[in-house]
Design a protein around this nucleic acid. Structure first.
Lengths: 299, 299
DNA sequence: GCAATAGTGTCTCTAAGACATTATAAT
DNA sequence: ATTATAATGTCTTAGAGACACTATTGC
């Protein structure tokens, strides 16, 4: 690479780089925002009934402007000496104390006015954690970080088709609850095809007590999670070491937002699980076998 | 949002924002890099034979340090008054003169040392264009931008599985050709599962005359294209208004890197195409019907 | 016995894969 | 007739979906 070539001004590479001044141009700030999801159980009063599952997200109450007092997904500025991935891992471990958990880059949000403080571009990451392995403060009452139940609802779905043009519109309502705190965002997703020109857009329609464009980030993440739940073994990231197949099924159901047929479900996930010798009993009904995750490389 | 709340220092929101100084912190630079792909035809000497298809990418020869003289995918710094998407569209239209074409965000690359000039984070976008509608200089001899044929080869694919651990390694060789110019990059993709902890990594193994980490970006884009070709109607972005089903099939084949059976292929894409009255004849064999794209909303 | 969940069997329908056959132009 | 491509038919297999049935515990 450095073979002493000269540029048009007759300058070699090392001299060029030594004199290169990045601060000559205006630069945006870059943050990493972390969508942190888990699945929790809601115990029933009837001891013989199995607990329900619920999808949860970790949010932090802002103690500074802008959106002071509102709730936001955790995040922070990327440091100069860490990669985006490292920044995401750092945020995650600061918030939850967990390490070695699943993490993937979701999308980079770069609208000009998404942050009133100025031009801030944010790479959103999504992390899935097993509720049982979170050991820290997050979610305790001492902390400003709390786990919110997620309700995800498509309230309006229209498809307009003409000869050469078609537009699909979805309005997705996201409701987040923690005890008596209620947040809500509505995201409008528009896909349009005109001729063969395709556009796809997510817009924040309304946002109640949810800071910034975080409603859109959350919707993007939930859609990704649903899609990956169907096509990969990602859901096991939310499971403990040992689990029953019904627990696994209920986890899938709460992610996909629909109920599944037991026999079909078991056929589908069979390749990802391995039976163990352990069983769960004393539940007021037939005991169930415990399974564990078995890695399976897709084709 | 602005309801005159005060922060811990007793400052209201508008005062806070007026005094907020983003330049207090070191910031990275942000660029947009554009993977610009098309499919072209290679005419055969035998007039009765159909032309072959080839996948092409637009590259620019660098006329400045670093990587002076090497080839890179087009890109540039994001301006303060444009969104990431807008920056991508601007780059694209500057390079090709086309507008209204397909564009999607691919991935954001944020390794600390990916650019010797300093900390530069890059959002890569992928665009698919129909070769026929490109009207500008790009690719002409006067320009420093040229279309390179792509050869994509998995040279090494291993899966190591132990009881609780499994590692999948792929080495992907990407060769790019324009007349007598040959570029090459090898990308190593490692997926490992240990317990249930999953990591996924793409590393540039070697890069010959291809600047920066662009080999990785190209590999990422080609993988995305393959995946979307199977699951969506994205391939039509590479087709002209009217086309024969064999042309369409050959386009799929060059993207997927495998040949397909005609009857099965036609069944699969039937929902995306509409027959027209036009036919192609005088080709030394049975004439074929011309089809056009018909939008179809997935489920 | 009843409530509640665990676990399996099987029929149908659809989509994918493999292969074979017929059709039609230009030379 | 030959070459080359166009276009369709059909058998098989794999997987998804729907539903029915049997099993096992605690109360």
């Amino acid at each position: 690479m450095n073979d002493n070539k000269l540029n048009a001004q007759g300058v070699d590479e090392s001299t060029f780089l030594a004199n290169y001044d990045m601060t000559a141009f205006d630069r945006p700030s870059v943050t990493v925002d972390m969508l942190l999801l888990t699945v929790d159980e809601i115990k029933s009063e009837n001891i013989r009934k199995l607990p329900e599952k619920t999808l949860k997200i970790l949010l932090i109450q802002r103690n500074e402007h802008p959106y002071l007092g509102q709730w936001a997904i955790p995040g922070g500025f990327v440091r100069m000496n860490e990669s985006l991935d490292q920044a995401a891992y750092r945020e995650l471990s600061e918030e939850t104390g967990v390490d070695n958990v699943y993490l993937e880059q979701l999308y980079t949000f770069g609208a000009v006015n998404r942050d009133p403080r100025g031009r801030i571009i944010s790479s959103a990451y999504m992390s899935l954690v097993d509720m049982h392995q979170i050991t820290t403060k997050a979610g305790t009452d001492a902390s400003d970080a709390k786990w919110f139940d997620i309700r995800y609802n498509v309230v309006n779905h229209t498809v307009k088709s003409e000869s050469n043009q078609s537009v699909e519109t979805k309005e997705i309502e996201i409701e987040l609850n923690h005890e008596n705190i209620q947040l809500k965002a509505v995201v409008k997703v528009v896909k349009s095809v005109s001729g063969k020109h395709v556009t796809f857009e997510r817009k924040l329609f309304s946002s109640d007590q949810l800071a910034f464009d975080h409603g859109v980030i959350i919707q993007t993440g939930l859609e990704r999670l649903r899609s990956k739940a169907n096509q990969s073994d990602i859901v096991f990231q939310l499971m403990p070491e040992l689990f029953t197949l019904t627990e696994l099924q209920k986890t899938y159901e709460v992610i996909l937002g629909q109920s599944l047929l037991k026999a079909n479900f078991r056929r589908k996930i069979a390749k990802y699980v391995e039976e163990t010798d352990e069983i769960v009993q004393d539940k007021g009904h037939r005991p169930s076998k415990l399974f564990k995750y078995k890695p399976y490389m897709e084709e």
